[in-house]
Design a protein around this nucleic acid. Structure first.
Lengths: 122, 122
DNA sequence: CCGACACTCAAGTAAATTCTTGACTGTTCT
DNA sequence: AGAACAGTCAAGAATTTACTTGAGTGTCGG
């Protein structure tokens, strides 16, 4: 039986999926200001507590949020390394594309419409 | 009935959702190397062409990809500004959290760091 | 001890997502 | 002109998601 797997290498699938929901982003934004218990995260949200808990579980499975239960209170906080992993993935793709633009090969390869080539566009 | 709430930026919903699918990320990774027509994007993928087109539509609606049809060929390319917008959102949240941690350490160490007048007037 | 509190679990539902197939449109090649 | 190519459109099936309600568990304050 799997009781608790501490083995959560953040898959991009899960992380992006977690961030795709506005409620979960609102939770992340709140947690960016500091850790908070579940019931406080639920306060501004117009849904049942159980629903909020489900969102938090998704955030936790994605590795974006870490929680710790003390007594009857579960405290949530952000895991910045997961956030950083996403940031890095995006930055790398954007960097690739922009370095590609420096080469200028492909854009100039598109066929010009047969009339005379006017290079200057005023 | 659709119960939605708390809409910050509707585009973030779509962008994160678009990136949450491995097929769509594979398309983005391919496009990071340079623009490509739909059928070339479909080549390595093990699904019908229609399915790939649907993925591309989602990427386009999210603003991550821009397409242009010439003759019978639709060419796709990355829109780096959308990628950058996501990067910025994440970096801001991570920055908030980390600054928060710094503050906490300082506040526990010293009573009050005097708020100096910043002279940023460029 | 008792009740309020802070979740927790399970089951069910409406809507969204992902992918398929089959028919169809518009282009290019020969 | 006809065949092949590149994509488009629509309808439908299997699965997943985002909630709900109702009942239960463990913890703290008085």
């Amino acid at each position: 039986m799997v009781k608790r797997m501490l083995n959560h290498q953040p898959s991009l699938d899960r992380v992006f999926h977690a961030l795709a929901d506005p409620t979960r982003r609102a939770i992340v934004e709140r947690l960016a200001l500091g850790q908070a218990p579940v019931s406080e995260l639920a306060k501004p949200l117009t849904m049942s507590l159980a629903a909020v808990v489900q969102h938090i579980q998704i955030l936790e499975q994605s590795g974006l949020v870490v929680t710790h239960k003390a007594g009857r209170v579960r405290t949530c906080r952000i895991e910045p390394r997961t956030l950083q992993a996403v940031e890095t993935w995006i930055a790398q793709r954007r960097g690739l594309w922009e370095r590609r633009l420096d080469r200028l090969g492909e854009l100039l390869a598109e066929p010009a419409p047969a009339t005379e080539a006017a290079k200057d566009t005023p």
